[in-house]
Design a protein around this nucleic acid. Structure first.
Length: 273
DNA sequence: ACTATGCCCTGGGTGC
DNA sequence: TGCACCCAGGGCATAG
């Protein structure tokens, strides 16, 4: 499941390969029509063909390719999507949903087992991500911002971290990891956290996202970088999918529960409400 | 205004 | 071995 560190790794890999290139052909494969969301698949293909990619940006878990006609191609990989740069002659892998050919003879493949990925072509990128707040690693997402965002929410702190309007890019892995690093029970109501604990949570969030970025993301299942390789941060996680194992800080057994409809991993001893 | 739930989708795992 | 079932979850729509 690509979250901020994974999407940023893909962006860094693909940026030098895509920027300056012109799209020569696009094919959304049969059965993957929902990828286009707001367009008919053929209309989306037509909107991309002939366009030069001028920049590749990221906001939260969204990739934003700036096109030479002023529009933006906004991509979201959801849970199982990957974007891999290949040669045009390479055969389609299993679960390939779309293919974009470039003018240098290379090709970009979208692979997505569960078909949740979405592509938009819009005038303003914000149209394609209307409920998205500041990117979790941006200056706008400051400790003060997090403090005021959590102060007026009665939901579990983990649910607040998963809310893309609060800190875009945080998903299930890094919400659990940040709570563990900050020694906060993920079920604690967000508004009950005092300033010191919010400050700890803010630092923890930055720490886990930055560490994962250094490891080129976590590959628990389907995540692959822009060249098709796995990341290795999953080797370094403290709690995510480690239920039944000892907490590396206090030795208690890591538990799994459900918070905000998501599997949630935490240490029942050293993470406090 | 806020919060909870269901939907989309398919492979992998489990139990019988 | 086969088959039915459940689980994983990001973001959005809808209901409460």
């Amino acid at each position: 499941m690509p979250e901020l560190p994974e999407v940023e790794t893909i962006r860094r890999d693909l940026s030098p390969l895509l920027v300056g290139r012109t799209i020569t052909a696009v094919r959304i494969h049969p059965g993957a029509e929902r990828l286009a969301v707001t367009h008919a698949p053929r209309a989306l293909e037509r909107a991309l063909v002939g366009r030069r990619i001028e920049a590749l940006d990221r906001h939260g878990k969204y990739l934003v390719a700036r096109l030479d006609d002023g529009r933006s191609w906004v991509l979201h990989l959801r849970m199982t999507g990957s974007l891999v740069h290949t040669g045009q002659a390479d055969v389609a892998e299993r679960f390939e949903r779309a293919r974009v050919d470039l003018d240098d003879g290379s090709s970009l493949r979208l692979r997505d087992m569960r078909k949740f990925a979405t592509w938009h072509v819009v005038q303003d990128a914000r149209e394609a991500m209307p409920h998205t707040g500041p990117d979790a690693l941006s200056a706008e997402c400051s400790a003060a911002w997090l403090r005021q965002a959590l102060a007026r929410r009665g939901v579990a702190v983990k649910a607040a971290l998963l809310d893309q309007a609060v800190c875009a890019g945080v998903g299930n892995i890094y919400a659990d990891e940040a709570c563990w690093i900050a020694r906060i029970d993920p079920r604690t109501p967000a508004c009950e956290l005092g300033p010191r604990r919010v400050a700890r949570l803010y630092a923890a969030l930055r720490e886990t996202l930055t560490a994962s970025l250094e490891h080129r993301g976590s590959s628990f299942s389907d995540y692959r970088d822009g060249l098709g390789a796995a990341g290795w941060h999953h080797v370094h996680v403290h709690v995510f999918r480690r239920e039944g194992e000892p907490c590396e800080r206090c030795g208690a057994t890591i538990e799994k529960t459900r918070v905000a409809g998501r599997g949630t991993h935490f240490c029942p001893r050293c993470q406090r409400r």
